[in-house]
Design a binder for these strands. Structure first.
Length: 595
RNA sequence: GGGGAUGUAGCUCAGUUUGGUUAGAGCGCCGGCCUGUCACGCCGGAGGCCGCGGGUUCGAGUCCCGUCAUUCCCGCCA
């Protein structure tokens, strides 16, 4: 018989009754009855009950074995009598009566519970991640992650893509997020950067004549964390296609995502093709470029209704005269809600730093509510028509400068729907946000800057760059959204050096800037580059959605905490002086350093 | 960098509103009892810098100031 096991802890059934088996695993739980002792033995595959009588020579040893110790037992598989069957366990019809017992590795007193599902503090979980990961829910998440990645690889390969690795030690890129830097020993004073994404490499792969590239790519960005943003590093399904239009990219990635989501979830999924919403429309109707379409409420502009001469609502009128707009969120069938429903929303708005959340209630053909009395018949008609509301509905108003109004209306839309409990459940709602603007105005400097990726192809190409107002130019740039979570940005790239120079010059860069900052790409594109485009959905976020976890750390094996510290490995850590010396580095104000 | 929440036993938390005897519970741990449990049960015990520092007070887990840590959000994330 094998040194450690003949079976795993999850596979034995009543068909094995009478067999002598050997099992290894962790002591999940013990129930000591003095004359009789039960051990729940757990491994990756399941849990099985081991039973020992007190006339067994191993009884005392079993009693003394601490939880989470690793043991090897052998014994006979015994059928449990009908009244002793445990239906919660797949192995619940049987148990193993031990004939031999070996402690492979005994456990000290645990710093946190392992068996059972407990709410535990993040810190203790991360510091003892190897224990945390033993818990069935974490085993399940990690397995899901593995299967998702494997499935993605299969789908991409069968769609004609090839996986290539790109460098981890590369050059710092001037655009985008803060880089993680790595000092070079052989080149004193110079630094590598970890890639924020393999963006330039994948475009170089296209310029190198490969047709369809993908990679489960590690990406590194030194930015602050969020619940859905792991600090430091994350993974993307990075992909790029030669001779591709925007629709080609959509038609390629949509089936991958929808098949993936239906493979790993029972929830309803948006059918292909996913709806496409322009950036402009998204900002108006949803107040964000990542609309959560599970929420049926929409925003619309009703500025016009408040301009009417008979409207006496000065608070809005004065702001409108200064250039503000009024956005409305219509909430259907809320007339019977208690006053507290509206008061709570108003209080919430004030917590958000707003003056409040004004509303009207349509009832008996009239507009009631705090703002109702200021409105004229005509203006109410305009509002009803624009918001498509009727008696029984309420309309909430937000008046502010366009950007602020959009953003707060977006928040209010979600908050109102949450309070109404009308956000659709158990469903994945996908959409594309398309037609992002190529440029935007930097409000602090009044300069025109790239609004997203400077390598996106402007819609209309050179002609648009030469003739249009830069702020009106759209880019072949798109995001894919699921339930309000941005899974990825992508773009059709600018593969023409002449259009690139023009595009950069509009944002205030000279052709020398372009060459020095993005020399490799610029150079490569001088010698014949295919039109190309791609996208890079975030793997961690996909797994998070499919695992239905609210926090991305639940689907990452060894995540860092919010301060970008690995509590298990104690990273980042101090290094020896001779290491610094070898790298020609000196650390300033060392007394300020923590620990 | 800014804002909110939290910080009490190894773990999860109560106690803080209204300052007042020796700071409690469950799990875990140690000891005892228990032959059918499966979150086993029962009895007993150990375990506390109430995050840290300062202040107010006769007296501070509780009030005030500061600070640190964890977390969520804003900024940031082409």
């Amino acid at each position: 018989m094998h040194l450690y096991r003949s079976h795993n802890c999850g596979e034995l059934t009543s068909s094995n009754v009478g067999n002598t088996v050997k099992l290894s695993g962790w002591v999940d739980r013990k129930r000591d009855h003095g004359g009789l002792l039960f051990i729940d033995l757990r491994d990756h595959f399941g849990v099985i009950q081991i039973v020992v009588d007190n006339d067994n020579k191993f009884f005392k040893l079993c009693e003394d074995t601490r939880l989470e110790s690793v043991i090897t037992v052998s014994g006979k598989v015994v059928k449990r009598s009908d009244d002793l069957i445990n239906k919660k366990l797949s192995t619940g019809e049987i148990e193993v009566s031990i004939e031999n017992y070996i402690i492979e590795s005994s456990s000290e007193i645990l710093p946190m519970p392992v068996s059972g599902e407990h709410d535990l503090g993040e810190e203790v979980r991360l510091r003892n991640r190897f224990l945390d990961l033993r818990r069935p829910s974490m085993q399940k998440n990690m397995l899901l992650r593995s299967k998702i990645i494997s499935s993605i690889r299969n789908k991409m390969i069968s769609a004609g893509f090839h996986e290539f690795q790109t460098p981890i030690l590369t050059a710092s890129s001037p655009e985008g997020a803060r880089d993680f830097l790595v000092p070079s020993r052989l080149n004193p004073g110079k630094f590598y950067a970890l890639p924020q994404a393999p963006q330039q490499f994948k475009q170089l792969i296209m310029a190198s004549g490969f047709d369809r590239y993908f990679q489960i790519a590690p990406c590194f960005r030194d930015e602050d964390a969020r619940a859905d943003r792991s600090p430091g590093e994350f993974y993307q399904l990075d992909m790029e296609m030669a001779f591709a239009t925007q629709d080609d990219v959509f038609n390629t990635i949509e089936p991958v995502l929808s098949e993936l989501f239906s493979e790993f979830s029972d929830w309803k999924i948006t059918s292909n093709p996913f709806p496409k919403i322009t950036f402009k429309e998204a900002m108006l109707k949803y107040g964000t470029d990542k609309p959560d379409l599970r929420n049926p409420l929409e925003i619309c502009d009703v500025t016009e209704a408040f301009l009417h001469e008979k409207v006496t609502f000065k608070a809005f009128k004065e702001q409108i005269n200064k250039g503000a707009v009024v956005r409305a969120v219509a909430a259907f069938n809320v007339v019977d809600r208690p006053r507290s429903f509206f008061d709570k929303l108003n209080a919430w708005a004030q917590e958000q730093g707003q003056p409040g959340l004004g509303y009207i209630l349509l009832s008996d053909g009239e507009a009631k509510g705090p703002i109702g009395k200021f409105l004229s018949k005509e203006s109410i008609e305009i509002i009803k028509k624009k918001t498509e509301t009727k008696d029984g509905d309420a309309i909430f108003f937000i008046c502010n400068k366009v950007k602020e109004a959009e953003s707060f209306a977006g928040k209010a839309r979600m908050k109102i729907a949450e309070d109404m409990d009308i956000i659709e459940k158990n469903v994945f709602k996908f959409c594309w946000t398309v037609d992002f603007p190529m440029y935007e105005l930097d409000e602090s400097t009044n300069n025109i800057i790239f609004s997203h990726n400077p390598f996106s192809m402007p819609q209309g190409g050179m002609e648009a760059l030469e003739n249009k107002d830069p702020l009106d130019i759209l880019a072949w740039q798109y995001d894919i959204i699921c339930n309000g979570v941005e899974l990825s940005s992508g773009a059709i790239r600018n593969h023409r050096t002449d259009i690139m120079e023009k595009a950069f010059s509009i944002a205030g860069y000279t052709s020398e800037d372009l060459k020095s900052r993005f020399g490799a790409l610029y150079n490569a594109f001088k010698y014949g580059a295919p039109p190309h485009g791609g996208i890079a959905p975030g793997i961690d976020r996909i797994v998070m959605l499919l695992a239905n976890e609210p926090n991305i750390r639940e689907v990452i094996m060894f995540p860092m905490n919010q301060q970008a510290q690995d509590l298990l490995m104690d990273a980042p850590s101090k290094i020896e002086n001779n290491q610094l010396k070898e790298l020609s580095l000196k650390v300033n104000s060392i007394d300020k350093l923590k620990k």
